[in-house]
């Protein structure tokens, strides 16, 4: 291995086509997840994302058995489950949280049971669950490009509506905006991001890519427009660095990227300028000293 300052260190891995495709996929998925993740974090849809990724798993297995497009099947199944959660959570007073819990475990169990019937397989379970960005096909890569373009377009066009429904759903409804439509769009974006990121970090870890950069960005800024760009920047740092480390150290790339995002989030918690643990500690200390002085 060359020195860390030598450009060749970074260029050498890129002579392999799998690494080129992998890097491109990571960059695209990072942008997509950070963009959608910002709204997911603000609207508090983390658990919905969790449910969707389980539904995606069942969707992949079912569409494999039926011989359709894996991604298409996964997407449809995820959206159906999201819709059912909304309906049932509201109806029987069992709470959305519990409704989500029931649905995602049910659909995941369905996926596991059906996997038994897929003799020669939806590769193996570990690949679905942990992803394999270096095995991404050229077709999937083009599909990812298209999804990212669509997401950027939608967020660009309907930024103001998305902000409104994530911040204040009640006001949005009062202003005559159809909550169903805009929330629905957010859910579609969420499903798209999850499906696309599937391949990179796998079904089990995909939520981290969505949540960690956006949450870290939230700690660093109070403004939404900044938050999106900071989230994208952080996601790119974690994604690209993670991929290289995985390559050099021969580690699985998905978990490496997720662990790095987690480290960034931890650093954010400690050192964020207004709310970081370190900052708060010093401020509280100063306050206590001041009030002791006043009391004396």
């Amino acid at each position: 291995m060359n020195g860390l300052l030598d450009p060749a260190t970074y260029l050498q891995p890129l002579q392999y086509p799998f690494m080129q495709r992998g890097l491109l996929a990571v960059v695209l998925v990072s942008i997509l997840c950070a963009l959608v993740g910002t709204f997911v974090v603000l609207r508090g849809l983390a658990f919905m994302g969790e449910a969707m990724r389980h539904a995606l798993f069942a969707g992949v297995v079912i569409s494999f058995l039926l011989g359709g497009s894996l991604i298409g099947g996964a997407l449809i199944f995820a959206l159906v489950v999201a819709w059912l959660i909304g309906v049932i959570g509201r109806r029987q007073g069992i709470g959305e949280d519990t409704a989500i819990g029931v649905f995602f475990s049910g659909s995941f169990a369905l996926g596991i049971v059906l996997l038994n019937f897929a003799q020669s397989g939806v590769s193996d379970l570990a690949t679905i669950l942990l992803g394999n960005v270096l095995g991404i096909s050229t077709f999937d890569l083009w599909l990812t490009v298209a999804v990212v373009a669509l997401a950027v377009l939608l967020v660009g066009l309907f930024y103001k509506e998305l902000v409104l429904v994530s911040f204040d759903p009640a006001l949005a409804a009062a202003q005559g905006r159809s909550l169903l439509a805009w929330d629905g769009m957010l859910l579609v974006l969420l499903a798209l991001a999850l499906t696309t990121a599937f391949q990179t970090v796998g079904n089990l870890l995909v939520l981290a890519l969505l949540l960690a950069p956006a949450a870290t960005a939230r700690l660093l800024t109070q403004r939404l427009s900044n938050m999106i760009f900071i989230a994208i920047g952080l996601a790119l740092i974690a994604g690209v660095t993670g991929l290289y480390i995985a390559y050099w150290r021969n580690l699985p790339p998905g978990p490496t990227i997720v662990l790095l995002s987690g480290v960034l989030f931890g650093l954010g918690l400690l050192f964020a300028p207004r709310t970081g643990v370190v900052q708060t500690f010093w401020q509280r200390r100063r306050l206590r000293q001041q009030s002791h002085k006043r009391a004396a």
Partner: peptide, 11 residues
């Protein structure tokens, strides 16, 4: 008596 309460650093 001279009671101060703060959440984090917010008095």
């Amino acid at each position: 008596l001279d009671t101060t309460v703060a959440y984090g650093a917010h008095v």
